[in-house]
Write a protein that binds this DNA or RNA. Structure first.
Length: 280
DNA sequence: CCAAGGCCTGAATG
DNA sequence: ACATTCAGGCCTT
């Protein structure tokens, strides 16, 4: 009964896209902005606010996307091995703060910091007889004291978080607008947030703003490109400059196509599993 | 434009 | 033990 396009909830959540998720018996529970999602192993969602969300992007035509990104042996293997892996569509503000926190860090610590932020600044609610803390609203983080934010273990990123929250509050960053406009415009805008460079911007664009051509290039992806694609994208240096990032991204999109972000997610997942890296 | 260095933090490594 | 390195970058000089 298992077709090629069944959602693999476990692998989708455990792929470095989201952090405030916990498995409890048969369900995954996750904070998504002001909502909480309870997801069954088959991908059925019940939410705290009782609203419809397309968290697993079921609007996407996976058959078409997979056909489009399967350009070579490596992607074919990754897609086959993790066929149920999905790009998630999460709350943009939470996503923005999450990836600002992620810079120069690792999954376990990102998770711990975000949990502290939610507990310190978010609203406590009960859902399915369990206690949760929603993700704090922009106005709360914009008004918060730097010391209190630092206390969540985010260090120098505290000021970035506060400033980012203020920009969202003042609509200098308008997520609804960014969702509609094209990749380049949205990227430029999101990069104007302090603490947001190319990599963080691409994560936010791909995981919350509907930009499937975003292709976050972190250390892992650079490693993967060097390992499997050195013939296609020559990487001279280990750390890439801003300009190199832009050029590389253009080459990537012209190779993988408009759904390059999906290719990134499959490759990233595969490589980290090969190295047995831990997830949530 | 590019390269180098600093930065919070906590777990892993020597 | 204690020092150093490293982890899913970004910013300033």
């Amino acid at each position: 009964m298992q077709d090629n396009f069944t959602i693999d909830v476990e692998n989708s959540i455990n792929s470095g896209q989201v952090f405030l998720w916990e498995k409890n018996e048969d369900y995954w529970y996750g904070i998504n902005g002001q909502d909480i999602l309870r997801v069954s192993s088959s991908g059925k969602i019940k939410t705290f606010l009782n609203i419809k969300t397309d968290f697993f992007r079921e609007k996407d035509n996976l058959e078409k996307i997979i056909r489009s990104i399967s350009k070579d042996k490596i992607t074919k293997i990754a897609v086959e091995q993790y066929s149920g892996l999905r790009i998630l569509e999460q709350d943009p503000f939470q996503c923005l703060i999450s990836f600002i926190v992620s810079a120069n860090s690792n999954i376990q610590k990102i998770k711990s910091s975000l949990e502290k932020i939610s507990k310190e600044f978010g609203t406590r609610v009960e859902f399915q007889n369990k206690e949760f803390f929603l993700f704090p609203k922009p106005e709360i983080l914009a008004e918060a004291s730097i010391d209190k934010i630092k206390h969540c273990g985010v260090g120098y990123r505290a000021q970035f978080i506060k400033d980012a929250a203020e920009m969202v509050l003042l609509k200098k960053i308008d997520f609804e607008y960014l969702k509609k406009c094209e990749y380049k415009i949205a990227k430029e805008k999101i990069c104007s947030v302090p603490g947001v460079g190319n990599k963080v911007a691409d994560c936010v664009l791909l995981f919350s703003l509907n930009k499937l051509e975003a292709f976050p290039l972190d250390r892992w992806m650079i490693r993967i490109l060097g390992k499997y694609y050195s013939d296609k994208f020559q990487l001279e240096t280990k750390t890439i400059t801003e300009k190199q990032y832009i050029i590389l991204h253009e080459k990537i999109v012209s190779y993988f196509g408009p759904f390059a972000g999906y290719a990134q997610q499959f490759l990233f997942k595969m490589e980290r599993e090969n190295y047995q890296k831990k997830w949530l």
